[in-house]
Design a protein around this nucleic acid. Structure first.
Lengths: 201, 201, 201, 201
DNA sequence: ACCTAAGCGAGACGGTACGTCAGGTCTTTCG
DNA sequence: CGAAAGACCTGACGTACCGTCTCGCTTAGGT
């Protein structure tokens, strides 16, 4: 479950005092709350330690960097997956799911997503962790839906699914990150209209 | 056309020693080189000052933040605009220009773009500077091409141009930033096939 | 005859796991070796525990402070008492014993004595342990010799023995600690000449 | 004047902002006062910095260790030299000066002397600094008095002055450091009686 | 030829946060 | 049931940069 955690093979019983689950939880919560309030750059390990009422070494024993910690805190807070509603058509199902995604991106977790992608540009481990733990599972789900669409004859069979997913979803992240235009439901509608027209049989 | 410069009304002759153009240049070069080597987060004003053989106040006198400085350094180093080759169709012209853009994104300046967007997630001024000085001028050029395509009947007239540009270009940045799949010329081809099908009359 | 040991009535068989003599020995050896190499101030309980392959509480259970532990380690390693050779006169016997003492002070244990006295300046327990367990037994032996010298008419009877011992021995420790001049056999000779002249009848 | 200072060739004018004499002074005072109140081991650089209202780097820029700082603070506080009163005889002059010295050793500066000698056992630079800046100047003064005593025929001419000074003064430091017996004026009297008898013609 | 003003490189300033070390305590499992 | 082992929390460490300031010094234009 934990990413960026240093050691602690979960194998069996080890001697010594066990790590405190309570402290672990308090750290994650403190990190998430401070992250939401003051952002990644202004976020300090000292502030997290103080708010969690924990020593700094207790944090460093578990996470090797601020990025890894924030990553874990984010994943612990956004566990419930987005689902593809079972509507009449695949296109409408995707449209509804993308509208849900936009809501998430506009909420505090969305800001954290932006910050994690941002931080990942100078931290290869971070962007990989985000990719593997958040992005790819969601892309897999979208991929399933696409294949269903192909099977039931609604979508073209000669299209690379990965490219199709990129075409649909990347504009959401693009606006999240660049902020050159607002992320609205209308935007999703227009986008789905254009891209799904290109993907339809 | 410096961005982020603090004051210095260029109006007339002011008293006192004039600012050194040579120092200005050395700072920009130092910033660009260090940026390429160690990234935005690890980049320090002290290191830039040391490499440019300049005092820190000389930097702060001209740029109010690391973000502004790096932005200027990037813009000073970046090549003249990408052009839309005059091929037979608008679609092919766009395809060729996007393939040029992919080449840029895969080169060192592309890494700096990624880092600037990344850094901008925790620095509102930086992302704004990038948007205004790099992104929007290029979007304007693309916008012109689109309008021409509409006029000559090659593209649908009922499409929001901004959304169309997002649909076409954002996947390139998405892969640049997330690295979940490679940025290839084939990718551009498939992408253009899908999206332009949705945009064609 | 451990000093500073916390509890453990040796009375009879006590319940529970018995303390490991082997661990005890390893701790003393580790403490002595590290002490010789890095000195009292830089010596840490953690390093001792690590070198002895023992947990920290195992040390704290037996010694209440670093000072007590190092003292025990020193005493366990130190040679049997210096003796006063039975020469013709008391003065010569003292001179020979002092020359032996100088040899000890110039050897590794001498450095540890210096370090213990040094550490004791900021650790009352340490200096007390050194005094009671090393210094005072040796001063008692010297005191016996003096009294014999008084009895046989070689030394003045109106002299405070403690002061006499201080006058004879303290210059050796003074040079050991201050290092303003070397500790040589010639130095002992000149010193004994001066002081014993003042002590003779 | 300053000992333990890192660089700063006093040669001529150096570029850059000059070091603040006021901060320097505040640090020395803070160090001396805290030293007197809580002792060397409990003394922390953070506490000194806080009391002097100075950043930690400002301290480390000037002194490489707590020991060096305390050394300087001590020397700044005890500048007035002990003098040899001009009494009838050399012996009495020495006795009076030693009684003054005992008073100093029993006062707070005396505790600091003990701590400095102690710290010097694991810090060669510190003991050297103490020797050169405090001990040797005072030994030189004592040496002058001795030579005068030899010239005026009160003291033996065949005695090594350094050994004589050691014989007289080292017992004071010995009792200061080992604390096996109190440092009293009576002790000085008995000591001077014994040793000066050995030194007299 | 001087004065005044603003620039220059250098480096110290008071701070904040870093990531680490060691202290001494507490809580498990093992013998 | 106590010894052993190791994580706990705390507090200080010494360092890196921050952005500002104060130096002595150019380098100009305006007297």
């Amino acid at each position: 479950m934990s990413r960026g955690v240093k050691k602690k093979a979960v194998t069996a019983k080890s001697p010594g005092r066990p790590r405190s689950d309570e402290a672990h939880q308090r750290i994650l919560e403190a990190a998430y709350e401070l992250m939401s309030q003051i952002g990644f750059n202004e976020l300090t390990m000292e502030a997290i330690a103080a708010r969690a009422e924990v020593g700094k070494p207790t944090i460093y024993r578990r996470w090797s960097s601020k990025a890894h910690l924030v990553m874990d805190a984010f994943l612990a807070a956004v566990n419930p997956e987005l689902t593809f509603p079972d509507s009449g058509s695949i296109t409408e199902s995707i449209r509804l799911q993308m509208q849900q995604l936009v809501k998430v991106l506009l909420s505090p977790p969305g800001q954290i997503i932006a910050v994690l992608i941002g931080g990942g540009q100078t931290d290869a481990e971070l962007i990989e962790a985000f990719r593997e733990n958040w992005l790819i599972p969601r892309r897999k789900a979208a991929s399933e839906v696409f294949k269903k669409g192909v099977e039931c004859g609604e979508l073209r069979a000669d299209v690379n699914v990965e490219v199709a997913i990129d075409a649909l979803y990347s504009p959401l992240f693009y606006r999240l990150l660049l902020k050159h235009a607002p992320l609205t439901q209308d935007f999703v509608d227009e986008l789905v209209d254009i891209v799904m027209k290109g993907l339809a049989v």
